[in-house]
Amino acid sequence: MLTGLQIAIIGGDARQLEVIRKLADLDARISLIGFEQLDFVYSGVTKEKFKDINFAEMDCIILPITGTAGDGKIELIFSNEEVVLTEDILVETPPYFTIYTGISNEYLNQLAKKADRRLVKLFERDDVAIYNSIPTVEGTIMMAIRHTEFTIHGSNVAVLGLGRVGMSIARAFHHLGARVKVGARKSENLARITEMGLKPFHLKQLEQEVKDIDICINTIPHLIVNASVIQKMPAHTLILDIASKPGGTDFRYAEKRGIKALLAPSLPGIVAPKTAGRILGNVLAQLIEEDVLKRKESL
């Protein structure tokens, strides 16, 4: 139970609604910022303006999955309010105060460091990433079907990256009958790809490997599908970039060449927000109890 804890939840998409329900059911008191356009009534939950929050009374904060922008601004889907997270705000918080975010950036990393507050990046956790790979795979399959004129079965698919999401996507497309090749850099990943019964290739060979593909699925959040790579692709190739913004594709050149390239980060929040939200809610409930409640009680 999270009885007595005061939690601020700022912005986010439909996944946050399941997080709110989970934490409220555990008896936490929740202040919502950036949800005034949403019709949401739940016991122990109040909608507030960012400027009215007394952060000295807050025990932790939950940011949107995307965290903050490079200037500290937080994107609010259900509000027009402008919210900027600053060091001045964090230094008001108690010493055990914890910041929870999906992903982070240099601004947020440095902000937490300067204020000496704990920063937890949920998507760097294996459990969250693996659970989230399930709706991500389903969303990728949905997009591949919607934006092609051929079946996945029998098509040539290249998956770039063998992280937790890349592995799940490669396996799923293989089971749907696609001829899957996977690009990676580490020798152990190339060995794993072989063990999975798929074709491995080193990413330095990417330009040669895309010459016969129908679908390219990128999971690497760095510019890897560049103009030189896109120039070698067949004109009908579909590029699905599911890496975090801004992705790893030269979308300008893809458009110039007439190749359909789609940036689709945060697929779990689009195709299965309830499932994705429950995953985050369960993990957050455990973390807050272990990290915040116990540290607060020990003081």
Rank of each mutant, 00 (worst) to 15 (best):
G166I: 00
R192L: 15
T136Q: 00
K114W: 12
T93V: 11
A14Q: 14
D13G: 09
D291N: 14
F55H: 02
C216H: 01
G163Y: 02
G248M: 04
P265L: 10
L176W: 09
H153L: 12
L26C: 05
L206N: 05
P273T: 04
V283L: 00
L206D: 04
M143N: 14
S266L: 11
M233Y: 10
S133A: 14
P268H: 05
D126H: 00
E82D: 12
K22P: 02
D291R: 09
R125A: 02
E92C: 13
Y131K: 12
F150Q: 13
K204R: 15
S168C: 09
E289K: 08
E18T: 12
P246I: 11
V45T: 04
D126N: 03
V210A: 07
A14I: 09
L206Y: 10
L108G: 10
E207G: 03
P200W: 09
R171E: 15
A184Y: 01
K51D: 10
I288L: 08
G281N: 02
E290R: 14
L2N: 02
F173A: 07
F40V: 11
G177Y: 13
N54K: 10
A170N: 02
N226E: 04
R179Q: 14
A178E: 03
A272Y: 08
A28W: 04
G183K: 01
K73T: 15
N105V: 07
K296I: 09
G247D: 03
R21K: 15
A178D: 07
T68D: 06
E106G: 05
D25C: 06
V120D: 01
T86G: 08
M58D: 02
V83S: 08
Y107T: 13
P273H: 11
P135M: 02
F251I: 07
S155V: 07
G67C: 03
